[in-house]
Design a binder for these strands. Structure first.
Lengths: 198, 198
DNA sequence: TCAATTAACATACGGGGCGTATGAGAATGC
DNA sequence: GCATTCTCATACGCCCCGTATGTTAATTGA
């Protein structure tokens, strides 16, 4: 045999994950038939129930995967800025831009809360909040921003970001709305600075 | 006949609306069987389809009803404050507190976006955003806050409020989280003031 | 006033999707 | 080398939704 058993198993898992992600992202959770997208992957629902327990289990795995990707992208962005404050702003604007992607938006912001409940309680999907909280913590210690609870602040900022993204993505004229949303978002972030003068 | 025909019709509509609201709020949209909650109201799915088109139609009507109630409560709160700024803060804190109610939270924040799509696009359910935008507009004209797009700002603030509410409501220790969330929320709002000195 | 029409529901039917129970086949362990 | 366990497919039944149809009662119009 050319490929080991474990490789085969990992492959079917990956196939299911990819098929589910594609279907959930394109059609939405409720409208995605397990028979359909497992069939497209050359498998059946039996494999899905074996690996993920149920439909919701697969969805949770997809959410975890996307969250880890998002977190990685955010860290990448913030690490490239010249100043911490700039990195923080870039990180948040980057979050908004990321959240514009239809697949991500549908899975993480539309269906996610309905299927898995409050995002705050998702077990393996709070990397983004943690990343922003970390940034806030550092900025606070350096005296760049006012005194604020890092985690709480991160949650509020994340909520605002995703809201802005949804507003933009679903608008008739996304470009115009994007300008207004991002501009207002910057204004909010500026309000956190301890000293508004650069 | 004691009661007119129109009264009977309005009553069945109201019964369906109330039954749907109760079921959606308690069990969630997907878990609410139309047969069940129409049956509890002494009716059948036939009446529901006649009055609301489909399950989603009833849900939209419930959302509109709740939004109008929330808007009224917000206006009530903001009108009672001594200063505009204080009214604005009270209004937003009030929004957070309102959003703690399980029924409201489940219908408006959890299931709503999944069933009806982006809340920004809900036809009869943006009263709260409009109310906050109106407050921002006035505050801006009076020079109390920095220059910011009222609608955009209102959306960001609303998103932050509802996020805070969900965080609080789903926390293990709601009281402790509430303090942190509300305090951070105040800090954010303070960041909008043109002059941070009272 | 009396038929004809329409509104307001209830009932009946069909289809699809989910979860589970069962089965088969292959790799692993002793 | 045989039993076992893991991996996945198949088969079954239930629930739920949407629609088509039926029924009763009120309204309209001449």
């Amino acid at each position: 045999m050319r490929r080991s058993r474990n490789e085969m198993i990992a492959e079917t898992r990956a196939k299911l994950l990819a098929a589910g992600r594609k279907a959930f992202g394109a059609r939405g959770y409720a409208e995605s038939s397990m028979d359909d997208f497992t069939g497209e992957a050359g498998l059946t629902r039996g494999a899905l129930y074996h690996h993920f327990g149920d439909k919701k289990g697969l969805f949770a795995a997809v959410v975890a995967e996307i969250d880890s990707e998002m977190t990685a992208r955010l860290c990448e962005i913030s690490s490239m800025a010249s100043t911490r404050w700039q990195g923080f702003v870039d990180e948040n604007i980057g979050y908004v831009l990321m959240a514009l992607e239809p697949e991500l938006q549908r899975i993480m912001f539309r269906d996610g809360p309905a299927v898995l409940g409050d995002p705050s309680q998702w077990p393996n999907a709070n990397g983004c909040i943690a990343a922003v909280a970390q940034s806030l913590e550092t900025l606070k210690q350096e005296g760049v921003i006012v005194d604020i609870d890092p985690e709480a602040g991160a949650r509020l900022i994340n909520a605002a970001s995703s809201s802005a993204a949804q507003w933009i993505a679903n608008a008739e004229n996304p470009d115009a709305i994007a300008k207004r949303a991002v501009e207002s978002f910057r204004t909010f972030l500026e309000g956190l600075r301890a000293n508004k003068v650069d």
